[in-house]
Amino acid sequence: MSASPENLVAIFVMALAAMAAKGGGFIAMRWLGRHRFVAAMLDHAPGAVLVSAAVVPLTQAGGAYWAGAIAAAVLTRTAGGFTPGLFGAVGAVALARWAGLQ
Rank of each mutant, 00 (worst) to 15 (best):
S2Q: 13
S2I: 12
A3N: 11
P5H: 07
E6G: 13
E6M: 12
E6F: 12
N7Q: 14
N7S: 15
N7G: 10
V9W: 06
V9Y: 05
A10W: 13
I11Y: 09
V13I: 14
M14G: 09
M14Y: 12
A15F: 15
L16A: 10
A17M: 09
A17P: 10
A18I: 13
A18H: 11
A18C: 15
M19R: 08
G23Y: 13
G23I: 11
G25P: 06
G25V: 01
G25K: 09
G25R: 06
F26N: 08
F26C: 04
I27C: 12
I27L: 13
A28Y: 08
M29C: 06
M29W: 03
R30T: 04
R30S: 12
R30G: 12
R30Q: 14
W31G: 01
G33L: 09
R34K: 10
R34N: 05
H35M: 10
R36S: 00
R36H: 03
A39L: 03
A40E: 05
L42D: 00
H44Q: 15
H44Y: 15
G47K: 04
V49K: 03
V49N: 02
L50P: 03
S52A: 15
S52E: 13
A53T: 12
A54H: 01
V55M: 09
V55P: 03
V55S: 08
V56K: 10
V56D: 09
V56N: 10
L58M: 08
T59S: 07
T59V: 11
T59G: 07
A61E: 10
A61T: 05
A61V: 03
A61R: 00
G62L: 02
A64Y: 00
Y65Q: 06
Y65K: 02
Y65M: 05
Y65N: 00
A67Y: 00
A71S: 11
A71E: 01
A72F: 05
A73D: 02
V74Y: 04
V74G: 02
L75T: 01
L75Q: 05
T76W: 03
T76K: 04
R77D: 10
R77I: 15
T78Q: 11
T78S: 09
A79L: 12
A79G: 03
F82R: 01
F82V: 12
T83L: 12
P84R: 07
G85I: 02
F87R: 01
A89W: 01
V90D: 05
V90N: 11
V90F: 15
A92F: 02
A92L: 01
A92M: 04
A94N: 04
A94Q: 06
W98L: 14
W98M: 08
W98K: 12
W98D: 11
L101A: 08
L101E: 04
